[in-house]
Design a protein around this nucleic acid. Structure first.
Lengths: 202, 202, 202, 202
DNA sequence: GATGAATGAGGGTTCATTCAT
DNA sequence: GATGAATGAACCCTCATTCAT
């Protein structure tokens, strides 16, 4: 009777540990040994669950993305009014900022940096695809708003990019120096400017 | 003293080469040997002008920043109207996108990723300081606008962050996939939304 | 005591599996896990029957040797004429080439390579001892032939080495490229040259 | 003025050191660090001259082969009589046995073992090709002998294989235990048996 | 007895940095 | 000053072996 281990569960535990360590030391500066030690396991054990460091990295990225999508998805689920949904989308960012996941967000920059360099075909980190997905969601929210006559008929594709970019860029700035502004306040202010800027007859 | 001039000039040449190589291969994947080869000099020669790879990285960052500031500064120099200045600030980004410097912008993400991890005291890449500088500029532009009654009395500190963040985030998205939207169009659209969103009696 | 029989039987099964895997992948490239998997048992189980990989290797060598000796011994058993015996010895190689054991012969080179390196005292693979045994057999056959006046009084020790060497070397060459010559034909040709070369008044 | 190093010369020195170490410890048991230490250089320096251990191995093989070919070629160069040439070929082995190169011959077995496992397309160690080359040489010597009516019209292809195999196999046996027979004597005896065995009207 | 999860010593390789020429 | 040969610390990954179940 061999030792029975929930492989999936342990893989998850390693992954979460990895993300934490990535956040602390940076993806490139993190050694497999660091992850192993942080997880309280042997170096070799990591390789029982992941084939390579690269696989850990890309899985971390995917994991992080899915957390985000989850938070956002839950927020929008029960809303019907398109502007409410848009507002909820902004608000979801506020929630993420406070969430456990947020503490790992520093990794995202590493992923970005890594992702920009990847060939389009590479499986690992596909930044373009990630943005495409988010952009599609926001664009459809904006389209609903336009259809409902709640905002001017702006170019929703570009506007979606602007909204996403704003949140990303704001986050980076805040991480760089958390004392400079109150991120929650900033996120509250965002829709007031954006929605206001898009309202009206166009 | 021609030697001193030569020394400075050569340091510059190495730096510019380094930025190019960083952009192509990523900061982490760039070896000193790559820079030396690209610069057409010996590996050891690089160390005659720079004490370490780290120093090249931080100097690259500073150099890049100064290029940006230069472009923006020249744009704003002769303007008087505060809203014009704000618009010029946005427009400067459009110019940068087309500029020679822009071709190196892919490095910025590496700088970000690296910068976020640095201790505040570290000399290398001080993202916080960089943002502080930019934010101060934009904030003062916004303050002028508010003083002149051209926009609502918004929290100019946070708003400046939002504006900067928007441009950063937009850029990253565009780099990830340049076919998804027209960056020039996006930059033109930005002030229309922002200024509109901030106008009015507040 | 069925357990003891089982134990022996299972040890054999592991061994035979090991030889097969060794032949396919080479001794050095074969992992314990490979053997376990090929045997349809767990990795740990292998260690219930063998204390180390080294032991498996040396046992494989012994096993292989014994198979060969068996084939040859059976061939010579009922013969009386010394030259017939010598011819039968050659012929035995022809049989071995077709035998089940032959399919594993690719391992032999690994054994050779490993064996040459071993200290004389080491238990694992004693190439010298193996050759000594074979040589003694062939030498006594040759001595019989000389005594019977069937061949010239050659140095039977050296000649035995030559005969054995020829068969070994021929085999290796054939394994390297089986299309170059017909091994059965070569083995038939051997005694014609050797016996002829040793015949006569000396 | 950089340090000037005869790259080729140093590569050779590393190679020769490598062969020595391979001979002592076996190819598989030799660490790059061992080679470096034996050569009195740093581990990293080895990689300035060789891209991988694999490259060192295959180069060692090639080097060894070329030494052998050189010795043999020089022996045959000035001979005209076909049987003399054949005898010289045998004698060359006697010379090799005494030569500096011979002290490394233990590596050859590793090469063989490794070579047998290689795919035909693999560049590294091509045992089949090596044998083909040697076989062609010996076969043409035999063909000359047959044409000149000096030996029976044997199958020269197979006979060449037998001759080569004999020398290989003999060598291995001798390496396994050098006290058992005198290799020089054996090599002298070889042609007496072979030539005698092939002489006559057939 | 059987298992396979866990382990860590060990080896190949990279690369920033040094330094003799 | 310029160079590139030399170096070794570091890091990823492998795999024989152990051991708890």
């Amino acid at each position: 009777m061999p030792k029975i281990v929930d492989k999936k569960e342990k893989r998850s535990r390693i992954l979460e540990t990895a993300i934490k360590v990535f956040a602390q030391k940076g993806v490139n500066n993190t050694k497999i040994a660091d992850i192993a030690q942080a997880a309280g396991i042997g170096k070799g054990t990591v390789y029982e669950y992941y084939h390579s460091k690269e696989e850990i990295i890309s899985d971390s990225f995917r994991h992080f993305m899915e957390s985000m999508s989850g938070v956002i998805g839950r927020r929008l689920l029960h809303l019907r009014d398109p502007v409410d949904k848009l507002l909820a989308y902004f608000a979801a960012w506020g929630e993420i900022v406070d969430s456990e996941a947020m503490s790992y967000i520093e990794v995202v920059l590493d992923f970005w940096a890594e992702g920009l360099r990847q060939e389009k075909t590479a499986m690992t980190i596909n930044l373009a695809e990630m943005y495409a997905e988010y952009r599609a969601t926001v664009k459809s929210l904006l389209d609903e708003c336009v259809s409902a006559g709640r905002i001017r008929p702006v170019d929703t594709q570009i506007t979606a990019s602007i909204l996403l970019g704003t949140m990303d860029g704001l986050l980076v700035q805040w991480i760089a120096d958390r004392d400079v502004f109150d991120i929650k306040l900033a996120i509250e202010l965002l829709p007031k400017i954006f929605i206001a800027g898009m309202e009206g007859h166009g």
